[in-house]
Simulated assay, not measured.
Amino acid sequence: MEILVAGGAGYIGSHMVKMLVKAGHVVTVLDNLSTGHRSLAKYGELVEGDLADTALLDNLFAQHDFKCVVHFAAFSLVGESVTNPAKYYRNNVCNTLNLLDAMVKHDVLNIVFSSTAATYGNPVYTPMDEQHPQSPINPYGASKLMVETLLQVYAKAYGLNSVALRYFNACGADPELELGELHDPETHLIPLVLQAASGRRDSICIFGEDYPTEDGTCVRDYIHVLDLCFAHQLAMQAMLSGQLSGAHCFNLGNGEGFSVKQVIDAAQAMVAQEGFNIKVQQAERREGDPAVLVANADKAKQTLNWQPQYTDLTTILRHAWEWEKKQPGLVGRNFVY
């Protein structure tokens, strides 16, 4: 069937497109390439365009028989959302509204939405389930929560079916090494650690070692990008089969946390086998970093029959490391393949 993937040239979106194409679907990728990359749009048909362009959306839906939309097209830098909130509300909320209106107009009534654990804000308890209070502490999280509210309203008013998937920490890379993280700037811990190993970065910084955790560093729930994508595929199937109707939300995480030091130590043990070292520096805590963020994803497991396949930290790091070694400027280094 025909599927539209908005933001399909980005990190998670590109992995999603590959999975859908491999499953036999016909995929159209809509991406303005502001944070996505043409080099990651290896699968599907790329349409370079913006969700702000309502005429483009109207033409796109008129020309295709889409059965479902998978929506990744959002800005996601927390710090930038604080300094430039208008950019986040305009793109993440207003442009999503354009997409929803085009879907309703053309009777495409199924959407999987890329949401975030940032809608919860500071944890009241962990692991965090879907009943945890939603009180975002930055415009990024607030913008995603606004879209979740839109989806609930559109379900009641227009019969739009939706699944909002609240990610915890996406990580890893395509095991076939066609796709991986290409953020600029990079803000995620695992690629930053591996860039320090490969030499693209001088060191990795630990922000705070006095948290109330076992080793004093923050604990996060890391979920492999392919496990995320598989959940999207299951959510899409659940709506198209009639199993799910209306607006739904699910957490996506492993349910197990790893501390910053655990990630660095595991990465160091892995890269040391190839003669590489990770230089570590210490710094003060960053404002707004909770000690522990771990998901309770039982609802997704029970309702969607979703089960993460890549839960081992070393496996996640290995996939990301093999991708890191493929990056420009690193070819010819003394890497072991």
Rank of each mutant, 00 (worst) to 15 (best):
Q243K: 15
N32T: 12
E186V: 05
C68Y: 00
D65P: 02
M270E: 14
K261I: 05
E274S: 14
P185K: 08
Y310S: 04
D210L: 04
V163E: 06
P175V: 15
A62T: 12
P191C: 10
K18D: 01
K261E: 08
C218M: 10
N277M: 10
G255S: 02
A86M: 06
S203G: 03
L33P: 12
N305W: 03
S259R: 07
F207K: 09
M128V: 04
N254C: 10
R200Y: 00
P191W: 01
K42I: 09
K42D: 04
G7T: 11
L177N: 13
S34G: 01
D184S: 08
I3R: 01
A6M: 04
V5Q: 07
A269R: 15
F258R: 15
A155G: 13
G332E: 08
A118L: 02
S245F: 00
Q131E: 09
Y222P: 11
D265H: 14
L165Y: 01
K87D: 01
Y154H: 09
L317Y: 03
V69Y: 13
P127I: 08
S259F: 08
R200L: 14
D101E: 14
L189K: 01
P175A: 12
A86C: 00
C249Y: 05
N32P: 05
L57N: 02
F207M: 10
M16N: 09
Y337A: 12
L179N: 06
A297C: 10
H71D: 09
F113P: 07
A157Q: 09
H319R: 05
F66V: 11
K279H: 13
I111C: 07
V280Q: 07
L330A: 03
I278P: 03
R201H: 02
F250I: 11
A86P: 00
A6P: 04
K144Y: 00
Y310P: 01
H132A: 15
G257R: 10
V108I: 11
N91P: 00
G24V: 04
E287S: 15
A269L: 12
V29S: 02
A62R: 09
K301A: 14
L177I: 11
A142H: 06
S114Y: 00
F113M: 07
E45Q: 15
A297N: 07
L317D: 09
L33V: 08
L179E: 09
H232I: 00
K42H: 03
Q195W: 00
F207A: 13
R333T: 06
L165Q: 07
